[in-house]
């Protein structure tokens, strides 16, 4: 083969690779909608989204409590993990010496690498009994899921906020210090405002992670199909609903369609969060 032909062949092959990569996204969208859309039709879009019954034997599916459950755990966890995560990021960029960074950095990396199932396990064995005995039974509850998600979203928020704080030009900080500002004044008045949109982006991406987390939430939330009255009530999210039933639902049944429709709603939320996050962090 001549050099020219090799060149053309290679180019075609590589292009094919990227086409296949692209097809995966298209494929996911297609199969999700093909299976999930029927649920909107079978139940009626309004009844499906605002319905409060999930009855497999009668084939009636409404996901209102699931949407609320997902939104509750997401907001609940982010309210706590955002300020904590941002604080740690500030600590890492502006306070920690390089020795301390060498210890804490790998810790946070490890935290990001812990399988979600392990968070679920520790939550289930440690946290759930703790809540049951000290606060209110059954322990499997909204608050348990929120606490687990606080820990799980932390690495995302820390790492991305840190990136954005680090990308603030050094000149800004120098200008502030040279005018007699303390470290904290510089962080508060210069670094944080300059990194604001990146940090908001990090937090919103954290929300995307939280709403999409399935296994750990499933293991601690109790999976009661109802709108929780308090933080100590068991509840169910879009994701934990899928985890609980994906194995038993028959292919092409209305039940399976309803699970896929949960996936569609979940995906809409995730894309919404990630889209905003990309915009804020200027990724796209």
């Amino acid at each position: 083969m001549s050099k020219k032909n090799i060149e053309i062949t290679v180019r075609c092959l590589l292009f094919l690779c990227s086409i296949i990569s692209l097809m995966i996204l298209v494929g996911i969208g297609y199969f999700l909608f093909k299976n999930g859309f029927s649920a909107f039709i079978e139940n009626g879009l309004g009844n499906f989204i605002f319905g409060k019954t999930w009855n497999i034997s009668k084939n009636v599916y409404g996901v209102y409590p699931l949407i609320l459950g997902s939104l509750f755990v997401t907001t609940g966890s982010i309210i706590v993990s955002a300020p904590i995560g941002i604080s740690v990021a500030i600590f890492m960029t502006d306070i920690a010496t390089s020795d301390i960074k060498k210890i804490i950095g790998p810790c946070i990396e490890l935290m990001a690498g812990i399988p979600s199932i392990v968070f679920g396990l520790v939550g289930m064995i440690f946290l759930v009994p703790l809540i049951r005995e000290n606060f209110s039974p059954p322990g499997y509850s909204l608050i348990a899921a929120i606490i687990v998600l606080i820990v799980m979203t932390m690495p995302t928020i820390i790492t991305l906020s840190e990136d954005s704080l680090r990308s603030v030009p050094r000149q800004y900080k120098e200008a502030s210090y040279a005018l007699g500002a303390t470290k904290w004044q510089t962080v508060w008045n210069v670094t944080l405002p300059a990194a604001k949109s990146g940090i908001i982006g990090a937090v919103i991406l954290g929300m995307g992670r939280a709403i999409g987390e399935a296994m750990a939430v499933y293991m601690v939330i109790g999976n009661a199909f109802k709108i929780p009255n308090s933080l100590f009530d068991p509840s169910r999210t879009l994701t934990s609903n899928i985890v609980g039933q994906i194995e038993e639902a028959a292919l092409n049944s209305q039940h399976m369609h309803a699970l896929f429709a949960c996936g569609i709603i979940l995906l809409i939320f995730v894309f919404l969060f990630n889209g905003i996050s990309f915009k804020m962090r200027k990724v796209v």
């Binding site: 996911i28 199969f31 093909k34 299976n35 991406l205 999409g212 996936g263 990630n274």
Partner: peptide, 17 residues
Amino acid sequence: KSLAGIPSIIYGLFGVA
């Protein structure tokens, strides 16, 4: 980038279907 953000449970559904 969008693929990277999709929750893993969605891949589970896709894998089944």
